[in-house]
């Protein structure tokens, strides 16, 4: 497999981590390294997407992901178009398809979609010729989050083959969990989900994972402890008796963090609930690479946008061109 395989296959969209195999992921992560180097320059700009137009179609509140994508696009000198759902025709009852076709008619190359309903980016991809990037769809997928997590993990652990990652928390309602279960296992890592049964899907038969309800039993063998944000309103749905009990049973307390191996990483997609899924003090330890994840998000999204929207040049050539 060569570095150009993903490009030669001509993927048009990034909708799910299920679309990517290990070689694809490695290619994206390698490209991310080049863009990370760009980001460190005094003028962090490359004209790789000059003349391309990207529209943001965010149907769900997002500050972090959206800023990250916007920064990535700016560094590639792409033009961007912001479709603000709150003040748009969507509130006047326009259908999703009509919205997409309206934006597409203005001439765009890419659409970055976030929506509260699973599968929406895939539907959008069927209504436009532009490339579609899934920036999070309901409980389903958040592929760029997974890629930035893999990139961050790889920076510290080098090869992820055989490494053991625990994903802890509200798996059932988490697109990050669905993406990372696929992403980490594609890279050869062992993935264990840790959650009470009420925060797991009723079956995990199709997931490449192991499951436990006992975080304490596996702490010493982990290379990564990945904590998910606990949706505070879940308490009201009575899926956990109380946030206090959740913290006691499933939170990464100081005592639990002390039992992790010295070189283990603590990761979190943000935003954190300090004192719920992670003790406030633990989030500030050197092992917690949470702000690195955010920083790497920009470079990963540059790589993804470039791969999907870049000019006809071979990836290697373009890497050379931007170097």
């Amino acid at each position: 497999m060569t570095a150009t395989s993903l490009r030669q296959r001509g993927p048009k969209h990034l909708l799910s981590m299920a679309d990517l195999d290990r070689d694809d992921i490695e290619q994206i992560l390698n490209l991310t390294e080049s863009f990370a180097e760009v980001s460190e320059r005094s003028i962090p700009r490359v004209p790789a997407l000059r003349g391309k137009t990207i529209a943001w179609l965010f149907y769900e509140d997002s500050t972090r992901t959206r800023l990250s994508f916007e920064t990535a696009a700016k560094r590639l000198l792409a033009d961007t178009m912001n479709f603000s759902v709150g003040s748009s025709s969507v509130n006047k009852g326009e259908s999703l398809r009509d919205t997409v076709e309206t934006i597409a008619a203005m001439g765009i190359d890419g659409i970055v979609v976030r929506h509260g309903a699973a599968g929406t980016p895939r539907q959008v991809s069927e209504w436009t010729d532009a490339s579609v990037v899934n920036a999070g769809d309901g409980w389903h997928q958040h592929p760029t989050q997974s890629l930035l997590d893999l990139y961050t993990a790889r920076q510290h652990l080098e090869d992820l083959e055989g490494k053991h990652i625990a994903i802890v928390g509200d798996i059932k309602h988490s697109r990050v969990a669905r993406s990372n279960a696929l992403g980490f296992s594609a890279m050869g890592a062992r993935v264990t989900l840790v959650a009470p049964p009420t925060l797991l899907p009723s079956t995990l038969d199709a997931w490449p994972v192991e499951v436990t309800h006992d975080l304490d039993a596996i702490l010493e063998e982990l290379d990564i402890c990945y904590l998910l944000r606990m949706q505070l309103e879940r308490q009201g749905q009575a899926v956990v008796p109380s946030l206090r009990e959740y913290h006691t049973e499933y939170g990464l307390t100081s005592a639990r963090a002390d039992r992790l191996p010295n070189d283990a990483l603590i990761m979190h997609p943000g935003p954190m609930n300090r004192g719920v899924e992670i003790a406030g003090e633990v989030a500030d330890r050197p092992a917690a690479v949470i702000t690195e994840q955010v920083a790497n998000g920009v470079s990963v999204r540059m790589a993804v946008l470039f791969l999907l929207l870049g000019s006809g040049l071979d990836v290697v050539d373009e890497q050379r061109a931007i170097a």
Partner: peptide, 15 residues
């Protein structure tokens, strides 16, 4: 339907 597909697709299922 609540089952392996709803689990993977991230959609709420009916058992």
């Amino acid at each position: 339907h609540e089952g392996e597909w709803s689990s993977v697709l991230g959609m709420p299922g009916q058992p």
